[in-house]
């Protein structure tokens, strides 16, 4: 087995992904994390994570629960700032720009890096207002018709428009779980982010809703850099081009998804993939 994690030679062609898997690593790097550590109070949750996230591809984080996947994801849009007692060390660069630079405004950062959460959390407002909220606070729409257009196109991109076009003024919380999650995706898309972070976006959904979201993620990859946390290895295999395996706060192995699943380098990765841990 090749011990050079991340640089493993490809042995198999991707079967379910339109992009050639080698492309994932060949693509320009969008996000660059170096030696990222996180402490929650006295407890260290992440130990020196370094990873490159390729542009316009799906990168998935897998690993047993509690291993720090969400924690690392939250570092990328600085959501850890909102957690009391959380301290982040190391550096994360978006297009070469340090996102922890004190001169950088996190409001702007979060407009560039959108987030979709584990449990669908639409605002308790109308479907329209849910999507319009981001453009409104960031001042992206100059007129009402601008805003209407953003809302409609975001809902279209999230594959939700046809289902909700007649009830845009109804509460977003009245949709089904899968629709709510797509609404959250539309809401994130509406501000035109470059990166979309998704933290186990399907864990609260049934298999059909999950399949729809996975398909959507595959489509969105064309235009967005996507990072997805998932506890389902099948999902990681289905939607992502790059996979990173976390264990006990450490990044054990990362590389082309294909390789991680067919040819894992580390024993822990193997054990996890074989269902022996987690």
């Amino acid at each position: 087995m090749d011990m050079l994690a991340g640089k493993v030679k490809l042995t198999q062609q991707s079967v379910n992904s339109a992009m050639n898997p080698t492309d994932a690593l060949a693509r320009p790097i969008r996000l660059e994390a170096r030696d990222v550590t996180v402490h929650y109070g006295a407890k260290q949750a992440l130990f020196g994570i370094s990873i490159d996230i390729p542009d316009r591809a799906v990168t998935s984080f897998i690993g047993p629960s509690g291993c720090g996947k969400s924690t690392f994801l939250r570092c990328i849009n600085r959501m850890n700032d909102t957690i009391e007692g959380a301290r982040v060390g190391g550096s994360i660069k978006l297009d070469g720009e340090d996102i922890y630079d004190p001169s950088l405004d996190v409001v702007e950062l979060r407009a560039r890096i959108g987030m979709v959460f584990q449990k669908p959390n639409p605002f308790p407002k109308s479907i329209y207002e849910n999507v319009a909220y981001g453009p409104r606070i960031h001042g992206l729409a100059r007129s009402k018709s601008d805003l209407d257009e953003i809302v409609v196109s975001s809902l279209r991109k999230a594959g939700l428009f046809e289902e909700v076009k007649d009830r845009l003024s109804e509460p977003g919380t009245g949709l089904s779980g899968g629709q709510q999650q797509r609404l959250c995706i539309a809401r994130a898309i509406a501000v035109g982010p470059e990166v979309i972070l998704m933290d186990e976006p399907c864990s609260a959904l049934d298999p059909i809703a999950t399949a729809i979201i996975e398909e959507l993620i595959d489509e969105l990859r064309e235009n967005y850099t996507i990072v997805i946390v998932t506890h389902s290895m099948q999902q990681a295999a289905r939607v992502s081009q790059k996979t990173a395996f976390f264990h006990l706060g450490k990044l054990i192995e990362e590389g082309v998804t294909e390789d991680i699943f067919t040819n894992p380098v580390h024993k822990q990765t193997q054990d996890y993939i074989m269902g022996r841990i987690g």
Binding site: V107, A111, F117, F123, Y133, I137, A188
Partner: peptide, 22 residues
Amino acid sequence: SPALRQAALGMGASKTQMVFHH
């Protein structure tokens, strides 16, 4: 619910906006 706060902050709302809008 913390989910609502996260949703707002995740959209890039400031803390004041989170409080007064949501």
